[in-house]
Design a protein around this nucleic acid. Structure first.
Lengths: 107, 107
DNA sequence: CCTTTGTTTCGTTATTTTACGAAATATTAA
DNA sequence: TTAATATTTCGTAAAATAACGAAACAAAGG
C-alpha cells in the first residue's frame, strides 16, 4: 500500500464533496431554496410536493438525504413534519463554498 | 399530465444542481483546488495522479466529468494534456453558489 | 519504422441513486 | 373504536456512478 496516499483528502475537501453531493439534484436545490425563503412559515412536505413533479415517497427520500447531511431538520408535529434549514451546517457549507471559490489564483 | 408541473425547476436551479453534482466527490474537489492553486504552471493528469490513491483511468473519468460540466478544459500537448480551470464557468458557478447561500431569510 | 510515454477509452463489475406504488405509522377527528 | 390524514418506510426496478486493468491512441525519439 502506498503510505503517502493513505490520507488523500483534507477534512474540508471531504465536507465540501458531501455538501455538494447533497445539492447535486434539482429537487434538493429546490427544497433548500423553498425553506430559505420561508423561514417564518411552517414548511411541510406536502406543500413542497404540490410544486414538484415527483411522487411523495420520492420527495421524502430527498428530504432524508438533506437531513442525513445535516442541511435541514424536521420537527415532528404529527401527522405533519415541519422542516427547516439547519443554520449551523448551512453556514458551514456557505463558508466552505465561499472559500472554495475564492481560491482561484491570480495571474 | 399535470400541466402546472411540467417546468418544475428554474434554469438556475438546474445549473446549480449540475455544478454541485460535479463537485460531489472528493477527487473532483481536489482537482479543482489543485488547478486553482496552480494557474501559472502546466497541470498534467500525471502530476495529480501522483497525489491521489486511485488508478489513472479513474482520474481520467473524473477529469471528463469536470470537463463535461464545463468547469475545466484540457489543451492537448501530446502525449501530455494540460488542464486548467474554465474561468467563465467557474465564475458562473461561483455566482450561483454565492447567490444560493445568501438566500437564507432573516427572522 | 519501431518503441516509449502520458493519457484516454473500453469492457466489466459493484455500488449508489432515483423513482414509483403499496404498505406501515402515528396522531387527530368522528 | 374507527376513519381520515400526512408522511415515511419498504420492496423493487432502471439508470448512473465509481472503480479497475487491459487495450488503444497519438506524438516524439531512437
Amino acid at each position: 500500500m502506498d503510505l503517502e496516499k493513505i490520507k488523500a483528502f483534507t477534512t474540508q475537501q471531504e465536507k465540501m464533496a458531501r455538501y455538494a453531493k447533497a445539492l447535486g439534484h434539482p429537487v434538493r436545490v429546490f427544497i433548500m431554496e423553498y425553506l430559505a425563503r420561508n423561514t417564518t412559515r411552517c414548511c411541510y412536505s406536502g406543500d413542497m410536493a404540490e410544486e414538484l413533479p415527483i411522487a411523495r415517497s420520492t420527495l421524502s427520500q430527498h428530504l432524508s438525504e438533506l437531513k442525513d447531511v445535516g442541511l435541514i431538520q424536521g420537527e415532528i408535529n404529527a401527522p405533519y413534519i415541519k422542516y427547516c434549514i439547519n443554520r449551523e451546517n448551512w453556514e458551514e457549507a456557505s463558508r466552505l463554498f465561499s472559500h472554495f471559490f475564492s481560491q482561484q489564483g491570480m495571474i
